[in-house]
Design a binder for these strands. Structure first.
Lengths: 161, 161
DNA sequence: TCAATTAAGGATATACAATATCCTTAATTG
DNA sequence: CAATTAAGGATATTGTATATCCTTAATTGA
C-alpha cells in the first residue's frame, strides 16, 4: 500500500504557494519546473487541490494558483484527502457473512470487529495528519533549510508571480 | 490508497486458526470455503503469514495451518506487515533536490520535513495496529457474535481439523 | 479587438500492481 | 503406495497510477 506521488507533489506545491505574495499567482509551469515533475500530470494534482478549495486559480497571463486560505488553516490531512480521497484505507467486504454456519439473511448488530480495528488505525493516521498544519511545515522549513537557499528560493518564486 | 483484500482475509483466517485445537491443523481449502474466497489466491496470503512466522504448516492428510504462537503474541501489525510489507505508505522521492536554486550535489542535513510528517502519521497508524492483539479480537468476537453462531462455528472448525 | 496565456478537463496510452487461476514439486499420512 | 497437502512458479486478467496530448473557455495586455 503506497500513497500516490501526487501527495508528495501537492504538499511541496502548497509550501511554495504559501510564499507567493498577496494578490499574486504562480503558474503550473513554474511549480512543475521548480519541483522537476511533468507539468501536465502535476496539473491534475493542482486541480484536485483546487476542487477541494485549498487553492484557487485565475486564467490568462499572470494567472496560476495561490492558497485560498491562510497556511494556518490548511492541514496535511486536507491535502492528502484532496489527492487520495476520504475513503478509509481498509475496505470491509463483509466476509463474515460467508460463514457457512451463519443463518442466511441474518442482520449484523455491529460493524465487523476486524474492520473496527482497521478503521481505528486509519483514524489514528488521519488524526496525526490533521494535527499538522501547512504553517507548521513552513516554520520547520525555515529552521531546516539554509538561509541563503531560503532567500534564493523566495526570490525565484517572486520573480514568477 | 487501499489495503489489499489479503489483509482482511489474513486477519479473519488468524481469528479462525485461533480456535483450532492444540496439535491440529486446518487446511487452506477449509479456510477458503469458510470465508467464501478463492482457495488458490488465499493460499498466497497464508504463505505470507507462514513466511512471517505467524502460522505454521504441515503436509499430507490432516495437514494445513495453525498459529505458531499464542494469539496474545500476535498483533494486527504483525498480520498487516506480513501481507503488505513493512515499507512506509509514504515514499519520499526527494523532489526538494530539484529546486533550481539549490547548489548541485549539496548534502541535506535532515530528512525532508514533508516526509518526516508523513512518516510520523504512518508510525501512528502502525502504533495503533501494534496495540491490538489477535487475542483482543477473539475477546471482542466472543462478545459480539451470538452464542449459538459462535458454538456452531467452533464445531465446524473442529470437525475439519 | 486580437493574440497570447492559462487553468480545466476529456481522451488516450503505458507501466505496474492487485487479483486470480493453473500446474508442478515435495513432504506427509494412513 | 496412493491420497493429501503446502509451497511456489508461471501466467492471465483487471484495475489503478502514471503520463501525455489536445480542446475549450476565461483572462490579460497590447
Amino acid at each position: 500500500m503506497q500513497l500516490r506521488n501526487h501527495v508528495e507533489w501537492a504538499i511541496h506545491c502548497c509550501a511554495i504557494l504559501a510564499g507567493v505574495p498577496e494578490e499574486h499567482y504562480l503558474a503550473t509551469r513554474d511549480l512543475a519546473e521548480f519541483h522537476g515533475v511533468p507539468k501536465e500530470y502535476l496539473s491534475k494534482a493542482l486541480q484536485a487541490l483546487s476542487t477541494a478549495g485549498l487553492i484557487e486559480s485565475t486564467l490568462g497571463p499572470g494567472g496560476g494558483y495561490r492558497l485560498s486560505k491562510p497556511a494556518k488553516e490548511i492541514t496535511f490531512l486536507d491535502i492528502v484527502e484532496a489527492v487520495e480521497g476520504k475513503a478509509s484505507t481498509f475496505v470491509c467486504t463483509e466476509i463474515r457473512r460467508n460463514n457457512p454456519c451463519r443463518p442466511k439473511g441474518a442482520r449484523e448488530s455491529k460493524a465487523c470487529a476486524v474492520a473496527r480495528v482497521m478503521w481505528e488505525a486509519d483514524d489514528a493516521w488521519r488524526a496525526k495528519l490533521r494535527s499538522v498544519r501547512l504553517s507548521d511545515l513552513i516554520k520547520t522549513l525555515q529552521q531546516d533549510v539554509p538561509a541563503d537557499l531560503l532567500e534564493k528560493t523566495g526570490k525565484w518564486v517572486t520573480l514568477r508571480t
